[in-house]
């Protein structure tokens, strides 16, 4: 049987995912996730012992860039989409230290 998804699990995951769910959305999310996990349970029929997890499709060999500066100053372009800026910086709500 798949993992049982509780409302607490959904609350915890929404903290990780930085999503704010209404009580209805939380209940909906619980149901959805339960259904999906029950479904993916199917994978446990498959014996994967000793199979190396496939993190990359091809043997690329080393892919590097050389240590040379290629980028020009582009502050205006980088900041152009920011919702709030000040003095050439991104402005965010106070971070608590």
């Amino acid at each position: 049987m798949a993992e049982t998804i509780t409302l607490e699990t959904i609350d915890y995951v929404s903290i990780l995912a930085k999503l704010k769910l209404t009580p209805e959305e939380t209940e909906q999310a619980r149901g959805d996730m339960q259904k999906l996990l029950d479904y993916v349970e199917k994978l446990n029929e498959l014996d994967t012992d000793g199979v190396e997890p496939m993190t990359h499709l091809f043997p690329y060999g080393n892919v590097f860039r050389e240590d040379t500066v290629t980028n020009q100053e582009a502050r205006t372009e980088m900041l152009a989409n920011a919702p709030k800026t000040k003095d050439g910086q991104y402005l965010v709500p106070k971070t608590i230290e």
Binding site: V69, T70, A74, G88, Q89
Partner: peptide, 20 residues
């Protein structure tokens, strides 16, 4: 001389966000 994943300089002392 450059950052780990892009060709921006690592030099200290630039105005904010000029090495991005």
């Amino acid at each position: 001389k450059t950052k780990i994943f892009c060709g921006c300089p690592t030099a200290f002392g630039g105005a904010p966000n000029t090495h991005t």
